[in-house]
Simulated assay, not measured.
Amino acid sequence: MKAAVIDRFGGPEEIYYTDIEKPVPGPDEVLVKNIYIGVGKPDYIMRSGICPFLEVKPPKLVVGNECAGIVEAVGSEVKGIEPGMHVCVNSGLGYGAYAEYIAVPQKFVTVFPDAFPLKYAPGFLNYMVAYALLNEIGRGTDGKSIYIYGAAGGVGTAVIQTALLQGIEVIASAGSQEKCDYIKSLGAHCVFNHKEQDAKEVIMDYTKGRGVDLIFDQLVGKRFASQFEYLADFGMIVIYNWLEGSPELDQLDTIIKQSSHASAVRSFSFHIYDDKPERLAKIRKICMDRIISGEIVPHFYMDLPLSEARKAHELMDGLKIMGKLILHVEEK
């Protein structure tokens, strides 16, 4: 079968399209014939070699974390999933999705009803993440307003759409006018270019000095501590990625200095739900119903053939993506 693989960790140039052996499902595994494949930050983390839980290494390591297609076969211990079903795979392994076929444990497979457009499935996890960030991880705050930095990507888009649906005020930023225009088109209340405008000045002016209740941070890095300056009393910064590394300042010391504002920091990984199937099922159903009903319509940036996986990563590394970038498996 065809797949996009790497022989060593590094940049997009390490990805190449080649033939590898088709997987055979184990007793508890589902074999899926892929149709669509999602491209996202977890793929960048895996490809770069900074994924903390990646259990396998190159060479011929198949890139990718999420895909959707049709069940071709199931192992002897699999229950409730049959050949022909439409499914989405969030591999949970950090690899394996950029291929014509993938075999994964049943726990990583979500069955979709026929009413759910399969093309939406690879980006479905973004909406589950958005729901969790707003309704589970962000609990304990007033939750009346949020700020998301770099909001034009797949998760940022999902957070904006979900927040607006729930009546939450959205402040969002991006690094280009094109991306700011895209975010405005989603309906965000306050949008600014963080390369040209100061976040504290914009946010404090917009909120009339109150600050924002929730900040969603996927970068962290040296700018982390400055975010407390525009966080509202009882506010929370939620870290859901570490793309720019750890903060330069000690986090606990920073929080202690903010005691008079009762500020909080919380980190999040969707793997928290790996052993919480009932909570995961609840989130999945809510998000699925919202998309089927049309309350939320996923946004796509581009649909490329699997053979152009390297180009997809060049676009991602170049910060070009607005919405969800997907790949499709070419028909033979």
Results as ranks from 00 to 15, higher is better:
Leu325His: 05
Glu55Ser: 14
Phe300Gln: 03
Cys287Ile: 11
Ile326Val: 15
His86Asp: 01
Arg47Val: 12
Pro113Ala: 00
Gly140Trp: 02
Leu165Gln: 09
Ala264Tyr: 06
Ile283Pro: 10
Glu169Arg: 11
Ala188Ile: 08
Val32Thr: 07
Val238Asp: 04
Lys33Leu: 13
Val87Tyr: 05
Asp289Asn: 13
Tyr95Met: 04
Ala188Asp: 06
Glu244Asp: 12
Gly154Leu: 06
Met85Phe: 03
Val109His: 02
Glu201Met: 07
Lys222Leu: 13
Ser263Ala: 11
Ala132Lys: 10
Gly75Lys: 02
Tyr101Glu: 08
Ile286Trp: 05
Thr254Tyr: 01
Ile291His: 02
Gly69Pro: 04
Pro277Gly: 04
Ile137Lys: 06
Asn193Pro: 09
Gly167Ser: 05
Asn65Phe: 00
Gly221Lys: 05
Lys320Phe: 00
Glu314Ala: 04
Glu29Gln: 07
Glu14His: 06
Asp198Met: 09
Leu54Ala: 03
Gly221Ile: 09
Tyr206Trp: 05
Lys285Arg: 12
Ala73Ile: 11
Gly49Thr: 06
Ile6Pro: 09
Leu31Gly: 06
Met302Ala: 15
Glu55Met: 15
Pro298Lys: 00
Lys33Gly: 12
Val129Gln: 05
Leu125His: 02
Cys287Gln: 12
Lys195Asn: 08
Glu178Leu: 06
Lys285Gly: 09
Ile37Phe: 01
Asp114Ser: 10
Asp317Gly: 14
Leu31Thr: 10
Ile326Ala: 03
Pro27Tyr: 00
Lys60Cys: 10
Gly75Arg: 02
Ile70Asn: 03
Pro23Cys: 00
Ile160Glu: 05
Ile171His: 04
Glu201Ala: 13
Ala68His: 04
Lys184Gln: 11
Gln258Thr: 08
Gly221Met: 07
Gln197Asn: 05
Asn126Asp: 13
Gly140Asn: 07
Ile102Gln: 01
Leu280Arg: 15
Gly10Trp: 02
Asp114Tyr: 00
Ala132Cys: 15
Asp28Asn: 15
Val202Cys: 06
Ile146Cys: 05
Gly245Val: 10
Ser76Glu: 14
Ile81Arg: 03
His261Met: 11
Arg266Gln: 10
Gly294Phe: 02
Ile168Lys: 02
Lys282Phe: 06
Gly211Glu: 01
